[in-house]
Design a protein around this nucleic acid. Structure first.
Lengths: 242, 242
DNA sequence: GCTTTTACTTGATTCATATCAAGCGCACTT
DNA sequence: AAGTGCGCTTGATATGAATCAAGTAAAAGC
């Protein structure tokens, strides 16, 4: 299965113990018995179509979510109504964690293409993690990682560095999931990449062209092949990678 | 005590139960007995002088810290050696949480002026939070808040909006701590404000002048008075506030 | 008390990237 | 197969903020 091109096809796993994402997701470090307890509070949702919302900013917070297949994005809206994409979520990644401290979701989550989720009642998760140290440990690890990822996005970089870093980080996340690190589909439109990295879509387009001209990558619509990973890494300034 | 101007003078509290910051810090929601247990794993450190490091990026992670008095900043360094200030930490705030998921501190922490800290062995804190649900709850809340704060800093705003937002957020944090929300000292130099907000120090200087000319605030060296809070809030686009 | 340093201010110029404005091409419709 | 729409590309121009370059003023050192 490794090194196939990442797709948004949804395998219909039901149990954490049978899920191939266990080494990335909540069950990291858990024994079979604990995993059984975790499974008992997890709901599998029906698939989400392209652009389908999981929750909307302002709704009362109750669940966090783990991506089973496909991709989701988190979006915050400022007071002028401008969107900002705070992150893209790949299989095995959690989202909704930013809402814990408030009673409401502070961002909206939306599916990119067809995707599927596990839903976890946060109250139950919190309760269970009192009894399962390994679960609590992993939850803290994931939160800490999220803090760090957001922080490294704040660093002042050129458009070139930001896009290179984005691609390298995405590649690395696909690799962790058993997909090819050099060839994958860009599920999100250019507009979304641009928004997430705080640049104009035109800039993303121009940079892709330059990267291709310079032999760093080949790109055709959503089909991306990284040709010179090392150069991309160096260009990125190693913001969230290295 | 309320509404005095924030200073870096250090009150020498020893116990959480006697600390005025209990309503913001880790003990939120804890009963006296639980607080006693928490106190048993907390070390009070000797004061830090201006620019004194608490830890340096790369050091092995063992403790997280809570600010008792004064202010600290967290700094990450990219591969080119450029610093980036990820945050300023006021009394009652925790830092070091970004290091949990790795074995090492990923940022450096440095005192601004004379400041003091509580130090908490993370292993012990994690262990204790298995037994104290309220502690675990508050820890998750604080992490979640940190995620959200970092995310809102990523939103694409003009220099004007960013600086206005920074001042409004700082004001609100001082207010929570019982200090004046309209008048306080900017402990950090312009250079640090600029770095944190990804702008040039010259831009910060020019903006302060413009804000003063427009009657939004009065500023003299480090002494800041906010004259028109409403206008500043509106200008900020309500990034991390509202 | 004078010099030096450091932080900050102010003005002139440059530059990276946004914005504006067409145009292209693939996919979906009918 | 022609029409339509949307996402993307490409070029020309505008602009916000960085950089460069002095100059000022408060604090620190001698």
């Amino acid at each position: 299965m490794a090194n196939q091109i990442a797709s948004s096809r949804a395998p219909s796993f039901l149990k954490c113990s049978q899920c191939s994402l266990g080494n990335l997701c909540l069950p990291v470090g858990m024994n079979n018995q604990d995993m059984g307890e975790l499974e008992s509070i997890i709901d599998s949702t029906s698939p989400y179509n392209d652009d389908a919302p999981v929750y909307t900013a302002g709704q009362s917070f109750d669940k966090i979510f783990a991506v089973k297949s496909g991709m989701f994005k988190s979006v915050i809206v400022d007071s002028l109504g401008n969107d900002h994409i705070t992150g893209f979520h790949l299989p095995g990644e959690l989202f909704g964690l930013d809402a814990i401290h408030s009673e409401k979701y502070t961002s909206s989550a939306v599916s990119l293409g067809t995707s599927s989720l596990c839903a976890i009642e946060y109250k139950e998760l919190e309760h269970l993690s009192h009894r399962l140290p390994s679960l609590q440990h992993q939850l803290m690890n994931l939160m800490s990682k999220e803090v760090r990822t957001s922080q490294s996005l704040n660093v002042d970089l050129t458009a070139e560095q930001k896009l290179a870093g984005f691609l390298v980080a995405l590649s690395s996340r696909y690799k962790q999931r058993g997909y090819s690190e050099t060839r994958f589909h860009l599920v999100m439109p250019r507009r979304d990449i641009a928004n997430h990295l705080n640049m104009a879509p035109e800039t993303v387009s121009r940079l892709f062209k330059r990267f291709a001209n310079d032999g760093l990558l080949e790109i055709n619509r959503t089909d991306l092949t990284i040709v010179n990973m090392q150069a991309l890494k160096e260009m990125s300034g190693c913001l969230s990678v290295c």
